[in-house]
Design a protein around this nucleic acid. Structure first.
Lengths: 216, 216
DNA sequence: AATTGTGAAACACTTCACAGCC
DNA sequence: GGCTGTGAAGTGTTTCACAATT
C-alpha cells in the first residue's frame, strides 16, 4: 500500500513549520554556489540541532548521502515540492488598511511562491485604489473572485469585529488556510487551517519574559 | 525559601503564551458585567480545554473557588501582575517603513499596556516624520534614547540585511526582549527573549497545510 | 451539586547514541 | 573517517480521572 512516496507515520506539525526555514537557508547556500551541506552546517545556520534536521528530512523520506551530506539543489527542489510551492497556490488579502497594505506590499515585493492575487475591502474610499499591480475590490465580490481565480489561501487583516464574518465567508467559498492578523479567535470547520498572528498577544508575552526573566 | 509568592515548579513557555489570551477574554467577559466564570466557560470562549486552563492558572497559584469558578475582576488583575503589565514596560520600534508604520499605528491605537514610546529609522526621508504622537528619530540615537527612556522591549521591522546589526545594538543597550518581523534568524545572548514573526515562512507552511490537507 | 486543583497516564517532540553506508 | 538515518531514552505538554472544597 503506502500512499504518496516516502512519507512516514504522522509528521509533527512543528516539523512542517521548520521546513520553510530549511528551504530559505538552503536556497541562500545554493546561491553561493555550495553544492553539498551537512546537517551540522545547517544546524549552525538555522539554530536547530543537527539531529532534529536529519529527523525532519527523514519524515519525508531520506535525501542525504551518508558520509557526504545533502545536495543543496536537490533538497531545495524536494522541499518546494513537499511544501506545495510548485503549485503556485494563490492568496487573497482581506482588509486594505495600514496593516493589510503593508503586508501586501511586503508580499508583492518578496514572496513570489505564494502570490497575493486579489485584495478586498468594504470601505468605498479604498475600493478601486491600486496596491502595486492589484486593484482593491469590494468585499462583495469575494466569493466570486475566489472561485474565478482558484484562490486557496487568505490573509485576514480586518478589524476584530469583522473577522469572524469574513472568515466564515472565506471558509464557505472553499479557502483552505487563513493567516489571521485580527485579534480574534476564529471558529471554523476543522478542515480550514488557521494560523494566528497577534501583535497584542506577542507584546504581552514579551512583557512576561522581560519582567520575570529566564528564557528557555 | 520559595521565591515569589505562589509560583510552582518550572512553568511551560506555552502556558505563558496562553495567558494573554485568557487576559483578553476575561477582560471582555468582565466588561459585560459577568463576575464569575468557570473553566468550562473559558474553554468555550478561548478554544483551549478546561483542564488546560485550570492547570495553567494553577502554575501561578490557584485563583478559583471550588464549586463556583473564577472571579473575573480578580483574575484579570492577577494575570496583569503575572505578565508584568502593571509595570508599563516601554517598547521601541526600529524601522519605519510600511510594515513598521502600520505596526506602530496599530499598537498606538490599541495597545495601552505595552506602549511604543520611540521609533527609529536610518532613512533621512523618514527621520523627523510624525507617526501619531511620536517623531521618528535617527537610529544613531538608539542607545541614548533606550537608556534615557528606560525602554526594555523592541519591535524590529527593518530589512533582512540590517536586522542582526540592529539587534546586537539593542541587546548591548540592555533590551530584554525583541519581536522580530525581519526574515532573519537573530544570534543574540540567551538572556534576550526573541520572538520571530515571519510572513514568508507562515505563507509557506500554509501552502503545505492547504496542499496536503489534514489539520490537527 | 458544581467546579476547582492535581497526581498519574497518555501523547508529542527532542536528544542520544550508534549502526549503516559512502 | 565522516555523516546520514533511526530506534530508544528523555523531556515537555496535554488529557484523564477523581479527591477536595465550597
Amino acid at each position: 500500500m503506502a500512499g504518496e512516496q516516502g512519507q512516514k507515520d504522522r509528521i509533527p506539525q512543528v516539523a512542517v513549520r521548520r521546513l520553510p526555514v530549511y528551504l530559505r537557508t538552503l536556497s541562500q547556500v545554493r546561491d553561493q554556489g555550495i553544492e553539498i551541506v551537512s546537517s551540522a552546517d545547517l544546524a549552525l545556520l538555522t539554530g536547530f540541532s543537527s539531529e532534529q534536521i536529519r529527523k525532519d528530512f527523514a519524515y519525508f523520506g531520506a535525501f542525504g548521502t551518508r558520509g557526504r551530506g545533502y545536495n543543496t539543489a536537490t533538497l531545495v527542489n524536494r522541499l518546494r515540492t513537499i511544501l506545495g510551492l510548485d503549485q503556485e497556490l494563490k492568496a487573497a488579502l482581506v482588509g486594505a488598511g495600514h496593516l493589510g497594505t503593508a503586508l501586501a506590499r511586503y508580499s508583492l515585493s518578496r514572496q513570489r511562491d505564494v502570490p497575493i492575487v486579489s485584495i478586498f475591502d468594504n470601505d468605498p474610499e479604498r475600493i478601486g485604489r491600486a496596491i502595486g499591480p492589484i486593484t482593491v475590490e469590494s468585499v462583495d465580490r469575494l466569493e466570486e473572485t475566489v472561485r474565478e481565480q482558484g484562490i486557496r489561501l487568505a490573509i485576514l487583516a480586518v478589524p476584530a469585529g469583522a473577522a469572524q464574518g469574513v472568515a466564515s465567508r472565506l471558509s464557505a467559498a472553499g479557502i483552505e488556510a487563513i493567516l489571521n492578523f485580527s485579534p480574534t479567535k476564529l471558529d471554523l470547520p476543522p478542515d480550514v487551517y488557521v494560523q494566528q498572528i497577534d501583535l497584542g498577544l506577542e507584546l504581552q508575552s514579551m512583557a512576561y519574559f522581560a519582567a520575570q526573566g529566564r528564557r528557555n
